[in-house]
Amino acid sequence: MVCETKRSWGAILAPYGFLAPAVIIVFGVLIYPLVYAVYFSLTDKTMLVSAYHFVGLGNYIELMGDSKFWQAFRHSIVFALVTGGLNLFLGFGMALVLNRRFRFRGVFHTVLLLPWVIPPIVTGLIFRWLYNDFYGYLNCLLLGVHLIEKPILFLVDAHYLWPSVIIANVWVEYPFVMLMFMAGLQSIDPDLYRAAKADGAGSMQLFFHVTLPGLQRVFFVNVLLQIIFMFKTFNLVWILTQGGPGGRIELLSTLAFHYAFEGTQTGYGSAVASIIFYVLLILSCIYVVITTRKIKER
């Protein structure tokens, strides 16, 4: 750095040149559409008529009195907390298991990670088949052991709809959490374990006094990431249920899709979609503020 006191314009502008393509693409495919979505949410735009007018906060005010919106909001919160929670639980558990040394560990690792690369439409197909009312494995199994008398409509029945959809989601989402926790476990200094063992700590004490404190940051990051990812989720819920009969599992994302594309009310649907963005923006800000504060402490 010392020898670089005399820097030409080229050298000063070089980093911006390297970054320009990325920044242009991000503006084009992320920022610009996002700003437009927020703008649409302030208009009465529809799918069918090209002319539209600015209506200010009209759509948002209407949403406040829309019971479907509040229902979807509640559903989205519950879905994010339950699915995210289960992902964390299973992901952390399996990470602890895979962190041990045993034979064929690599094979188990690969097999357990595989659901992660399955596209949502195929996951949807897999679970639709598994949950099928006449020939699906689950119903045949439950009927076979006489736990039930007639087939369960897993994706329709009010009692089973939520668990069925959540299980399918957890199946594809937990491997990511598992991977993050495995990374976290590997980053804990082995000397800490050695020192604790030398002091006579048992495996429980090692877990509570070395492992858990060492994973503090990983836990925090993953909890927030899971809430963010699960709050905006759309694909699998849409493929499996399209919001469910009578909107029983209608999330904000599926409601926005219903309003904007199927109901052709683009403006109103955009207001719902924008609200998802506002919630995520607040969560992302918390994430950034707390992670950067942690850096300064260190």
Binding site: F18, L30, L34, Y36, F234, F261, S284
Partner: peptide, 30 residues
């Protein structure tokens, strides 16, 4: 590189990962 705005650009690029696709899809369609 060391240059002014590095941290901000880095954070901005990374937080875009959290943008919901469902919010982008209507404007992209039009």
């Amino acid at each position: 590189f060391r240059f002014p705005g590095r941290r901000v650009i880095r954070q901005a690029l990374l937080t875009t990962y959290m943008f919901p696709a469902i919010t982008l899809v209507f404007p992209v369609f039009f």
